[in-house]
Design a protein around this nucleic acid. Structure first.
Lengths: 255, 255
DNA sequence: CGATTGGTTGAGCCCATTCAACGAATGTGG
DNA sequence: CCACATTCGTTGAATGGGCTCAACCAATCG
């Protein structure tokens, strides 16, 4: 926690304290290790520089804090630089649905473009840093840089594809398939970030996972125990080791 | 069926027969009744003209035909002019998930931008007409017309919001809530198109509805019967009359 | 006409939920 | 420091909502 220079305080809404130490946060896209997984993917060095200078602004978010909330007016997209987030939407009657988990390089706020208002909550699941991207300036830049605009169209489309994958999962998979798909997906994303794809450290609770997968937390817990007993996983709280990746993949239905 | 000048034939893949009579299909966005619900929404007359002349190309699709299929290379978006479509994704093991139903003014193919390949099937549920929008030319036009590009960003974002609404539905609603939400949503969309919002004519089968809602067709049938018995609906096959809209809304959880 | 597709309804079953108890870890205030 | 509350996770027993299997009917079509 202290490693990122956060001042200790309780979990509150925003993390905009101008007095905070940003000295280690000034580095931008150019030197970013996950640049190729983020908005600058596929841009030339010059283009990245342009994006960098005009747009990016780094901002820490502490564990438990909201980056934005449902109803907030939309001003910026946020690229996760380091850390882990969840997004969730609320139903009138209090029920919530987790719509996604975002890690380094992934973009938060795409749904807000639609109506200039955020339609979900984004909460940091660990101390994190995001790059703020003021959207009106980003749109201007997109008009100047064809490449950036085209990449951004793809980013939006990729989110649609992801969402539809979740629809498939929720609409036609059984519980064990859902959890297996979830773990396989997480592993793949860790792997793309040069992190171990077999030693997963979950940042979310069983309840978060359950909400995302359309299951109750008890069901998630039971399934993890079962996967453990079957030798697919080693489960120790939020530390999960994948022991039999083929077996997991088989559950999902892939070859 | 004959009203649109379709030559009768079996349901096959594409509907590109150059000998067909397009005389009644030449009219474009400018005269389109659902222009404000479609891509040209919010554009000036001049801008629409530009979009119109350079991009749109109308194309009939007969009931049962695929507009595109999973794996097809992506060249164009399609705006539904008249008719009704469903999109569905296939799982390796044969299971399918209907991801949406599209009516006049709605855009098909947004998911394909992501990887230059369609990732779902789009099938006409009745004789339909679509406006083909070659995407590379559309992107060029977006670079020239800031307004168009901004609207398009919103269109993509709106699809993300829609998908996340479906995730909420699939992930945390019970069967009766799902069906009620589905009917309310359909009614709202019909209403926006100046069609009756109480006399719904479903274009899809019970199985399609079930797939979309993550339910079995028998469950959908039973629920419709129950809603009928409870006086919420009058159900006669695919003709559904909403008798108690408030009651339906109450089921969804809205006030 | 028979064949096919779409829809309804019943009976029994099973998977995931509900309800509940309990343990471990963490944090808080006295 | 301990006592206590809180959060998170696990596990058991019983329940039930939606599924499976099956029969049947209606409409459409070749």
């Amino acid at each position: 926690m202290g490693a990122l220079g956060f001042a200790p305080s309780g979990a509150t809404h925003r993390a905009r304290e101008p007095s905070m130490d940003f000295s280690e946060l000034k580095s931008v896209c150019c030197g970013c290790t996950i640049r190729e997984l983020c908005l600058p993917a596929g841009l030339t060095d010059q283009e990245v520089l342009l994006l960098d200078q005009h747009m990016s602004h780094r901002q820490p978010v502490k564990k438990g804090e909201s980056l934005y909330r449902t109803g907030d007016t939309f001003k910026s997209l946020y690229a996760v630089s380091t850390g882990f987030f969840k997004t969730s939407i609320l139903h009138e009657d209090g029920r919530a649905q987790v719509t996604g988990f975002q890690m380094a390089g992934e973009i938060l706020g795409l749904d807000a473009i639609s109506a200039d208002r955020h339609v979900c909550d984004a909460v940091a699941l660990e101390d994190s840093v995001v790059c703020e991207v003021p959207f009106d300036r980003f749109e201007e830049l997109g008009q100047l840089m064809t490449n950036l605009q085209r990449r951004f169209n793809r980013t939006l489309s990729r989110e649609i594809v992801r969402d539809q994958g979740v629809m498939l999962l929720l609409g036609s998979m059984r519980s064990e398939e859902r959890l297996a798909a979830f773990l396989v997906n997480l592993a793949k994303r860790f792997s793309a970030r040069k992190q171990s794809s077999s030693e997963l450290v979950l940042r979310m609770t069983r309840e978060d996972i359950g909400s995302y997968l359309g299951l109750k937390l008890e069901t998630v817990s039971r399934l993890l125990s079962r996967f453990h007993d079957e030798g697919l996983l080693a489960v120790r709280g939020r530390n999960i080791q994948i022991l039999n990746a083929d077996g997991l993949n088989r559950l999902v239905g892939a070859a």
